[in-house]
């Protein structure tokens, strides 16, 4: 049983997003020292499966952050 999923389950959608953002934010600077707030917001502003995947699979963080930065710069 994943503790984060368990924690999120009873929360409102808005609260779930907030929690996911809080978890993601400190991880972003490791792959992209700039645009941390934007990347976090971008990953958070999707279906919950996206930020959950990044949190549960750290190796996907870099690629997701790269996608976010690319999209932001277009």
């Amino acid at each position: 049983q994943d503790p984060l999923t368990t924690t999120l389950a009873p929360a409102s959608p808005q609260e779930q997003k907030q929690m996911l953002g809080e978890q993601l934010f400190p991880l972003i600077p490791a792959v992209h020292p700039t645009l941390t707030g934007k990347i976090t917001g971008m990953l958070t502003d999707t279906d919950n499966s996206e930020p959950l995947c990044v949190l549960e699979t750290p190796v996907s963080l870099a690629s997701k952050a790269d996608e976010a930065v690319t999209a932001l710069q277009e």
């Binding site: 971008m42 502003d45 932001l72």
Partner: peptide, 22 residues
């Protein structure tokens, strides 16, 4: 062009502004 306001920027401890219509 269109102004770039998306995505909303996330700040820890600050209520996030995204998806306000949910």
């Amino acid at each position: 062009g269109s102004s770039i306001s998306w995505p909303p920027e996330f700040h820890p401890g600050v209520p996030w502004k995204g998806l306000q219509n949910i």
